[in-house]
Design a protein around this nucleic acid. Structure first.
Length: 286
DNA sequence: ACGATATCCTGCTTGC
DNA sequence: TGCAAGCAGGATATCG
């Protein structure tokens, strides 16, 4: 599942391959994937030049000539690749951007969860409310401790779904949330407003460092992610808890457990990340 | 306004 | 062996 580091890796690969290329025409094979409807979508893109590719959180923003932006979200399994036009078309290819140099930019998505949206450049924050409401990027400059103290302090939500909320911090997904909580020795069921300043400082440092390291490693190949640009993601070698249930914790040897928190699979070490009193009380009730 | 829940999809895993 | 049911999950819509 692409999270921020994977999307950034895709952005860099696409920039290298198709920045400056011009769209000849577009074929949409799965109409629900695009907006406005496929007819308008394909008509609007004819003759446009890909001037730049930006990213915000997990969203890709293709900047086209003529003030047009395509906002693309890969969701679970979306992938782009660039192929010569004679190359066979795989089963789950849903959109093909035919370029004028006889190459094709193809969008593949097994589960059809990804979405593309065409808007006038500059209006994306309004046209896509979830994009406009994104929290700060997880970097040292943009994610300040003061911001974290303020936002965490105001919420009773438990920290796992809190960190998955893109309007709080942009770009974290299920894998990296489990990882940074393990690194920070914070139980995923801890209410956000009970975290101390020290804990928030540790969490902040781990988020920033983990995302930066994952970008350096070209993302993770957990499940079906690969960059398709000749840069195989190798970050899975650095995962400590995600997908490691039943294995000993690298720090203390206690068995890593997997539970459900807010409907999401959640991995942690019950010794290094002890349950908060709130969670223990809830467990008494059962 | 907020939280909880259902929905979208397909492929893989699990269980009988 | 075969097949049905269960599970995975980011964003969004809907309900209370």
């Amino acid at each position: 599942m692409p999270e921020l580091p994977e999307v950034e890796t895709v952005r860099r690969g696409l920039t290298r391959l198709v920045q400056g290329a011009t769209i000849d025409h577009v074929d949409v094979y799965y109409a629900k994937m695009v907006r406005p409807d496929a007819e308008i979508f394909t008509a609007d893109l004819i003759g446009r030049k890909i001037e730049k590719i930006d990213r915000r959180g997990k969203y890709l923003l293709f900047r086209f000539s003529g003030n047009l932006t395509m906002v693309s979200h890969l969701r679970m399994e979306g992938k782009y690749d660039v192929q010569p036009e004679e190359s066979p078309i795989p089963k789950h290819t849903h959109v093909i951007f035919h370029l004028t140099d006889n190459r094709e930019l193809r969008y593949n998505d097994t589960r059809k969860f990804g979405r593309m949206r065409l808007v006038e450049t500059g209006t994306e924050d309004v046209e896509l409310p979830s994009l406009g409401k994104l929290g700060p990027e997880p970097t040292a400059e943009t994610l300040t401790l003061a911001y974290m103290q303020q936002t965490f302090g105001k919420s009773h939500k438990v920290v796992k779904p809190f960190l998955l909320d893109q309007s709080r911090i942009a770009g974290l997904g299920n894998i990296y949330v489990d990882e940074v909580l393990w690194l920070s020795k914070i139980n995923p069921l801890t209410p956000a407003d009970t975290l101390t300043k020290d804990q928030l400082g540790t969490l902040r440092q781990n988020i920033i460092a983990e995302i930066a390291m994952a970008i350096k490693g070209h993302g993770t190949t957990v499940h079906t992610f690969s960059t398709a640009f000749g840069e195989a993601g190798n970050f899975q070698n650095h995962l400590h808890v995600y997908g490691h249930e039943g294995e000993p914790c690298e720090r203390c040897g206690t068995e890593i457990v997997k539970i459900k928190v807010a409907q999401r699979g959640t991995h942690f070490c019950p010794h290094c990340q002890p349950y908060p009193p709130e969670a223990l009380e809830e467990m008494q009730d059962d």
